[in-house]
Design a protein around this nucleic acid. Structure first.
Lengths: 203, 203
DNA sequence: ATTAAATGTTACTACTGGGTAACATCGAGT
DNA sequence: ACTCGATGTTACCCAGTAGTAACATTTAAT
């Protein structure tokens, strides 16, 4: 009980009290889904962490599955925003965008919070093919791979499609193994490993 | 009901009736955990699929969590057996072992059944750090990576540790994205992608 | 045949979790 | 002041699930 109430107050701080309940619920869901998994937390705990109750939650979201889908959608738009940010930071330099993206993933992974990791995690937790979150994940995954292919093509490196898939799987693999192994996990050197692959595609 | 009884009979066929109940339960658990996820199926359904009941299940396994751990342990010994098999098939040829392993993964992934995939999947479904299956997964993951590093070192390729981690993440990534994308998933070309990386490590 | 161990059967407890109904309360706008 | 919409509160229902108790049944060993 002590731990629960403490965590609750933490999340209540995190969900700035000025926000409307829907946003607070999404913030709480984001934190709790990421920490405990999509199946590891109940709507009651989410509502409580958001400083509200189950009824208002169900007035804003038809079901828990749709709340999960909305949570996943939020993660996808966040990663899309990161790509846009990288594009403006390194205009007309696709290789720099890729490198910055890799560094960002490695850095964020060190701190444990990485939206792509949460997406990959949820993707393997949702076993039901009819879950509304599945199409969100699938669409994002496809779009993400296409983005990588496009950047690799524009970078002028050799065999861009193959390079894109290699980087894609490398990153997904690091996300998957992130929580299984400890500090010496292979994902820590993600940037180095990716750099090696990229270098091998230099003409 | 029809679907359920049909599935039940299928699994009852799969669990050869001559086997002792413990083995039948493990077989059923293997099938159902892989299909529905560790949290997506109950002990009752497993016992029924094994042609027995919940009581005998609990006479052989202390709890569901320990049954899950035993299921995971079975997956790990299976993958270890595969490595042994590859070693005898290609003695004193570590590179051939690695290649055969990659082909095997790609081939098994086509048919949907791959023990490593089930391990990776379960790893992301078990969010509780105290779950008895966690240490099984962690031990296996470490051992698996060590095996890869050892083989890469023995293969005489350049930067063997880096190559091992690249291949490791590549495979884990393909396992993670296996169920998210369809037929044109990047994991289908896993062997090709890995071959490219291996080639880039040729001296 | 008898015994003992393993297994089957039924029924039950306790708990969790998704989802809803009814009513109370508050807050802003008229 | 009044109203109406959004929110809070409480109390439920229902289904599923982990786990157990008690007793019946089979099976094999002696």
């Amino acid at each position: 009980m002590d731990a629960k109430s403490a965590e609750q107050s933490v999340h209540r701080n995190a969900s700035e009290r000025g926000l409307p309940p829907r946003e607070r619920i999404l913030l709480a869901a984001r934190a709790l889904f990421a920490r405990h998994g999509v199946h590891g937390i109940g709507v009651d705990a989410i509502a409580e962490a958001a400083g509200t109750n189950k009824m208002t939650l169900y007035r804003h979201f038809e079901s828990k599955d749709l709340l999960v889908a909305e949570y996943l959608r939020g993660l996808t738009v966040e990663t899309s925003a990161i790509w846009c940010e990288l594009e403006t930071a390194h205009p007309d330099d696709p290789l720099a965008q890729i490198n910055a993206w890799l560094c960002r993933i490695a850095h964020h992974a060190e701190h444990g919070n990485e939206s792509g990791c949460a997406l990959a995690s949820a993707s393997m937790q949702i076993t039901d093919p009819a879950h509304p979150g599945r199409k969100v994940i699938e669409a994002h995954t496809r779009q993400h791979r296409d983005k990588l292919i496009q950047l690799c093509r524009a970078s002028g490196l050799a065999e861009p499609e193959q390079l894109a898939d290699q980087l894609f799987l490398l990153v997904e693999g690091s996300r998957a193994t992130w929580q299984t192994v400890g500090d010496d996990h292979p994902g820590a050197a993600l940037a180095t490993l990716a750099a090696g692959i990229i270098a091998s595609h230099r003409r």
